[in-house]
Measured scan of single mutants.
Amino acid sequence: GIQEIVAMSPELDTYSITKRVKEVLTDNNLGQRLFGESILGLTQGSVSDLLSRPKPWHKLSLKGREPFVRMQLWLNDPHNVEKLRDMKK
């Protein structure tokens, strides 16, 4: 599951990941809330907090790293936007 992926993950640049996620969401007119609930399993508040103030990787616990790994996996998925759009319906 995701825990193994997080444990094996190389250090991620949390700042550039969140910046990229925000760009993709904005460009495709997708909400942070939808993204947070569907992709990260987080509430709106947690998501906007994460996206606006990402902590550096080395300061995060494994649990804290999980959303960033999920974001990275989502960014790597060529169908990420379509999938999210489908969830919106």
Rank of each mutant, 00 (worst) to 15 (best):
G1Q: 12
G1E: 15
G1N: 15
G1L: 08
G1H: 06
G1T: 07
G1V: 08
I2E: 07
I2M: 08
Q3D: 14
Q3T: 10
E4L: 04
E4R: 08
E4I: 04
E4F: 05
E4M: 06
E4T: 09
E4A: 11
I5M: 12
I5A: 12
V6C: 13
V6S: 11
A7D: 11
A7S: 14
A7E: 13
A7Q: 12
M8P: 06
M8W: 08
M8H: 09
S9R: 05
S9I: 07
S9K: 07
S9Y: 10
P10F: 04
P10N: 07
P10R: 08
P10Q: 12
E11V: 13
E11S: 08
E11G: 10
E11C: 09
E11Y: 15
L12T: 03
L12C: 03
L12M: 11
D13A: 02
D13K: 04
D13M: 00
T14P: 04
T14H: 02
T14I: 02
T14S: 01
Y15R: 09
Y15G: 11
Y15A: 10
S16W: 12
S16Q: 14
S16G: 12
S16D: 15
S16E: 14
S16R: 11
I17F: 03
I17L: 15
I17V: 15
I17D: 04
T18D: 01
T18A: 13
T18G: 08
T18P: 00
K19P: 00
K19R: 12
K19V: 09
K19T: 10
R20D: 05
R20T: 07
R20H: 07
R20I: 04
V21R: 00
V21L: 04
V21P: 02
V21D: 03
K22H: 05
K22Y: 05
K22P: 01
K22V: 11
K22Q: 14
E23H: 12
E23W: 04
E23N: 10
V24N: 02
V24E: 03
V24G: 00
V24A: 08
L25R: 01
L25K: 02
T26R: 12
T26W: 09
T26H: 12
T26V: 09
D27P: 03
D27K: 12
D27F: 09
D27A: 12
N28R: 03
N28G: 05
N28Q: 05
N28T: 05
N29K: 14
N29S: 07
N29A: 08
L30R: 00
L30K: 01
L30D: 00
G31E: 14
G31I: 03
G31S: 15
G31K: 12
G31M: 04
G31R: 04
G31W: 01
Q32H: 11
Q32W: 14
Q32A: 11
R33E: 10
R33N: 13
R33S: 13
R33Q: 13
L34F: 11
L34C: 07
L34P: 03
L34Q: 12
L34H: 12
L34V: 07
F35R: 01
F35V: 00
F35W: 06
F35P: 00
F35K: 01
G36F: 07
G36T: 06
G36A: 15
G36L: 11
G36P: 00
E37L: 07
E37C: 06
E37V: 07
E37H: 03
E37W: 07
E37P: 00
E37Q: 07
S38M: 15
S38E: 13
S38D: 06
S38T: 07
S38G: 10
I39T: 03
I39L: 02
I39G: 02
I39D: 04
I39N: 01
I39A: 02
L40Y: 02
G41P: 05
G41W: 00
G41V: 01
L42T: 10
L42N: 06
L42C: 11
L42G: 05
L42K: 09
T43D: 14
Q44V: 11
Q44M: 10
Q44N: 13
Q44D: 14
G45A: 14
G45E: 14
G45I: 07
G45H: 13
G45S: 12
G45Q: 14
S46L: 08
S46N: 10
V47K: 04
V47W: 08
V47F: 15
V47P: 08
V47N: 00
V47T: 15
S48P: 12
S48H: 15
S48D: 15
S48M: 11
S48N: 09
D49W: 07
D49I: 06
L50R: 02
L50V: 14
L50C: 12
L51N: 02
L51S: 02
L51D: 03
S52R: 09
S52D: 15
R53C: 15
R53D: 15
R53S: 11
R53G: 13
R53E: 12
P54N: 00
P54E: 01
P54A: 02
P54W: 03
P54Q: 04
P54V: 03
K55S: 12
K55C: 15
K55E: 15
P56A: 12
P56H: 15
W57G: 00
W57S: 01
W57N: 01
W57T: 03
H58F: 13
H58D: 09
H58R: 08
K59P: 00
L60P: 00
L60I: 01
L60A: 00
S61C: 08
S61A: 05
S61G: 12
S61M: 05
L62F: 12
L62T: 14
L62K: 15
L62E: 13
L62V: 08
L62D: 15
K63I: 15
K63G: 09
K63A: 14
K63N: 08
K63R: 14
G64R: 02
R65C: 02
R65A: 01
R65T: 00
E66P: 04
E66R: 05
P67R: 05
P67Y: 05
P67C: 07
P67S: 15
F68I: 06
F68E: 04
F68Q: 00
F68K: 00
F68P: 00
V69T: 07
V69S: 01
R70T: 05
R70L: 09
R70M: 06
R70Y: 00
M71W: 03
M71Q: 01
M71F: 03
Q72H: 09
Q72T: 05
Q72D: 10
Q72E: 09
Q72F: 10
Q72Y: 11
Q72L: 08
L73R: 10
L73D: 08
L73F: 12
L73I: 14
L73V: 12
L73Q: 15
W74S: 00
W74G: 01
W74H: 00
L75Q: 00
L75H: 02
L75P: 02
N76E: 12
N76H: 12
N76C: 09
D77H: 06
D77I: 04
P78C: 10
P78V: 10
P78I: 09
H79C: 11
H79F: 13
H79N: 13
H79L: 12
N80M: 05
N80E: 05
N80K: 09
N80F: 04
V81H: 03
V81Y: 04
V81K: 03
V81F: 04
V81I: 11
E82N: 07
K83N: 12
K83G: 06
K83M: 08
K83H: 06
L84M: 08
R85W: 11
R85D: 09
R85A: 11
D86I: 15
D86C: 06
D86K: 13
M87S: 13
M87L: 12
M87A: 13
K88Y: 06
K88Q: 14
K88A: 13
K89Q: 06
K89Y: 09
K89I: 10
K89R: 08
